[in-house]
């Protein structure tokens, strides 16, 4: 087992522990449980950084080429972006959604083959890591928006129905959750846009065409339009709250489908098979 795979496994275990603490934290009255969760997650993130670094040094390319690598990178971006949001909003509960998601990505990743792919000459472009990094950062920001959206819907339902569970006291205010939605949109949308543009430039240098309508591209474009509509609605028509929350959740479902579904059910240039010859 190489160093980076060992590190990956330790990271996965740490995320697992953090997830347990977050889930207990949802029902527990003790703040110490939630604090332990955030520390475990932070520790896991540091380990994850070293995992990626080790992989990078070992293979010499940005570790985003195989399914295993990209899942790990996605989870890393997710946790990193969440920790930044935590510093800004101090909402521990958000982690109860993000951490399990990161854990699931890591578990799927751990089932995938881990050897460094024999580099496809197609990937040997400066645009490739730029494209993938931007896309994943965008995905991670939108994941936060979706989690905030779920929290918004929960909190809103309690306020409307006037039936409060213990969760009510631990969830942030509607205003906070809605402003998170907006923040995510203003960061995530440019990231996603640049991700698509850089992807098109890379495609041009690899295949000699900017856009080929392969399934992944199509689905990414649909998601992009969805977020564009939400941003437009927020800025001009005064969409917010519930509607914005639902949009953020649907948008992220589309992104997940773009990432997983397209690889599993449809085939195209973005399939990892094509990259690695497996």
């Amino acid at each position: 087992m190489t160093v980076n795979v060992l590190l990956f496994k330790i990271t996965l275990l740490t995320y697992f522990a953090a997830t347990i603490f977050y889930l207990i934290g949802v029902i527990s009255r003790k703040d110490s449980v939630r604090l332990a969760a955030i520390w475990l997650l932070s520790g896991g993130f540091v380990l994850h950084c070293s995992t990626l670094a080790a992989r990078w040094f070992a293979s010499g390319i940005t570790p985003v080429a195989s399914l295993y690598e990209s899942l790990s990178f996605f989870a890393w971006a997710l946790v990193g972006i969440y920790l930044i949001f935590y510093l800004r909003y101090r909402t521990i509960m958000l982690g109860a959604f993000i951490t399990p998601l990161a854990l699931v990505l890591m578990i799927i990743g751990s089932a995938a083959p881990k050897q460094t792919p024999a580099l496809n000459p197609m990937l040997d472009s400066w645009w490739f890591p730029v494209h993938v990094t931007l896309a994943f950062l965008g995905h991670a920001v939108f994941a936060i928006a979706a989690a905030a959206g779920i929290m918004y819907l929960l909190q809103e339902r309690m306020l409307k129905s006037k039936k409060f569970s213990g969760l009510f006291y631990r969830l942030p205010s509607l205003d906070t959750l809605d402003s998170m939605n907006y923040k995510c949109l203003t960061f995530g949308f440019p990231l996603m846009t640049m991700g698509i543009i850089s992807g098109a430039i890379w495609a041009n240098s690899a295949w000699g065409g900017y856009w080929r309508w392969d399934p992944k591209e199509t689905w990414a474009l649909i998601s992009w339009f969805l977020y564009a509509a939400l941003l437009h609605g927020r800025l001009t028509v005064g969409w917010r709250g519930r509607r914005a929350a639902i949009f953020a959740i649907i948008g992220f479902a589309f992104l997940l489908f773009t990432f997983f579904g397209v690889n599993l059910f449809l085939s195209g240039e973005h399939s990892f098979r094509n990259f690695t010859g497996q």
């Binding site: 009255r29 909190q155 306020l159 009510f168 006291y169 942030p172 205010s173 509607l174 205003d175 906070t176």
Partner: peptide, 22 residues
């Protein structure tokens, strides 16, 4: 949390407002 949640109607209103508006 013995003293944490409002136990008068007017304070409950303020607390609910905080859950909406922050």
């Amino acid at each position: 949390a013995i003293a944490s949640n409002a136990v008068s109607v007017s304070f409950a209103a303020v607390e609910l407002a905080r859950k909406i508006f922050d």
